[in-house]
Amino acid sequence: MKNTFLVAALTVVAFTNSAFAQDNISVVGSSSVMPLMEVFGETYQKTHPEVFIEVQGPGSSAGIRAAKNQSADIGMASRELASSEEESDLHNKVIARDGIAVVVNPSNSVKSLTAQQIHDIYAGEIKNWKEVGGADKPIVPVTRDTASGTRGAFEEIMMLTKELNGIKVTAITQHAQVTNGNGHSKTMAAQNPFAISYISLGSVDSSVTPVQVNGTAATVENVKNGSYKVARPFQVLYKGTPNTRTQKFLDWMFTSEAQKIVAEGGYISIK
């Protein structure tokens, strides 16, 4: 009788454990992609309770490495891969894009800049608006704090990094005013007629004017068609053939439900 009871009890425990068991999907990489991926995971798990999606954001380079060595099911990157990082069986797909608008005060007569001019302004090499066709007034560059993913992308796109003793550091002038958020960055340009700043494209409103970059306007359409270059891809990466549960999650990221989340989050959907 005791043995029969024990077998029955163990059977119940095994059934219970299997009923509540979850298949983990590990996602590692860009801290900029992480907030979007966390919402993806939470939303997906509502209809797939058997899956647990664990998201970590140590950075794009770490995400690429994790995908390559398969220490994670999915890697995340908010930049293009370097040629040295590419492998024939390493797959990367863009799940969203993030446009970065370079903005000035609406009273500023300068409405267009080249990427080189923007670089030179933030590097402290161009210091007066008259050097780029504006008024004879000092330029006040505004940048984000060093923890900002937007700043990291802006530095990369505008080539505003340099090596110092073998370590990559920022090349943005120390005279730039530092803000701690998108809203503060926008306010600085809105309130100072001589300021220049950069913010997420979705944050642009009538309080600031986005300048054309290399003759191209900062619009969602131009980010989508690739003509506006001050933008970054939000990519997922995986090596070889994913397992079934990971493939289903990857496929879901391209559905209308997921892409609606992209747009609602202030990013640019790929559909």
Rank of each mutant, 00 (worst) to 15 (best):
Y238W: 00
K93E: 13
R97T: 11
A217R: 11
L90S: 05
A9G: 10
F40S: 05
P58H: 02
A153Q: 09
A258I: 15
F5G: 04
N214K: 12
T209W: 13
V230W: 04
L113S: 07
T244H: 00
I25H: 03
V27D: 00
E155L: 14
T150C: 12
A14H: 09
I167F: 03
K2Q: 14
N192C: 08
D23M: 05
T246G: 04
V169T: 15
S71F: 07
E125S: 11
K239H: 06
H48W: 13
V104L: 03
T143M: 03
G63I: 01
N24Y: 12
L250T: 14
N165S: 11
A258P: 05
E257I: 15
K127I: 12
F52H: 05
S203Y: 11
P49A: 01
Q116H: 06
P233N: 02
T47L: 08
V142C: 08
Q70R: 10
V220P: 08
F15S: 15
P141F: 05
V262Q: 11
I270G: 10
T11P: 05
V110C: 01
I139T: 07
H119S: 07
G181N: 07
I139N: 08
A82S: 13
A101Q: 09
V262S: 13
K239F: 08
G59Q: 08
T216A: 06
D23I: 12
A9Q: 07
P58D: 01
Q117M: 14
G181R: 02
S197K: 07
P106H: 02
K46C: 05
V13R: 04
Q212G: 04
V223G: 01
D73I: 01
M188K: 12
E50G: 08
P138G: 09
Y44F: 12
D98P: 03
E85K: 02
P233W: 00
D23R: 15
